[in-house]
Amino acid sequence: MPKRVITLTVNGETHEVAVEPWWTLLYTVREELGLTGSKEGCGTGDCGACSMLLDGRLVTSCIVLAVEADGCQVTTIEGLAQGGQLHPVQQAFVEKGAVQCGYCIPGMVMAAYDLLRRQPDPTLEEVRLALAGNLCRCTGYTKIYEAVLAAAERMRLEGARG
């Protein structure tokens, strides 16, 4: 059977991609579009390393079929920085030293970004809950939570961007 051509708008740019029905969105974005920021950790929806926004909703793209995303808007970690400027969430991760090996970080940042759009002033407990689907082997999470809370504060002060 020939591949199917689907349309994906990734970080504002529209692509036509030929995919097999059993390819995941993660595989397609990484291998066909060359956007390798999103990571594959578990491949089964448990670790969050592959988190991206699909039509504005945070999903684990390792268990989404690419054909299911046909015609959708996708935002990946590569889409957060604007004009060479890190997004406040990314900046806070850097400043708070929330990153060790970095493998979980694209997913963490996407989940934090998603939370702060819905809830600009979260409590620590809300941050922990929002990141429950994102595993980190290195940091022990404390600095990640601090970074998210710091980003929230900065975004409120700056009158919220993105």
């Binding site: 929806g45 969050g48 988190s51 909703r57 999903v59 684990t60 989404v64 989940a111 929002a130 689907g133």
Partner: peptide, 9 residues
Amino acid sequence: VGSRQTMNM
């Protein structure tokens, strides 16, 4: 049901 990600799907 699972995480925020899971609940969205």
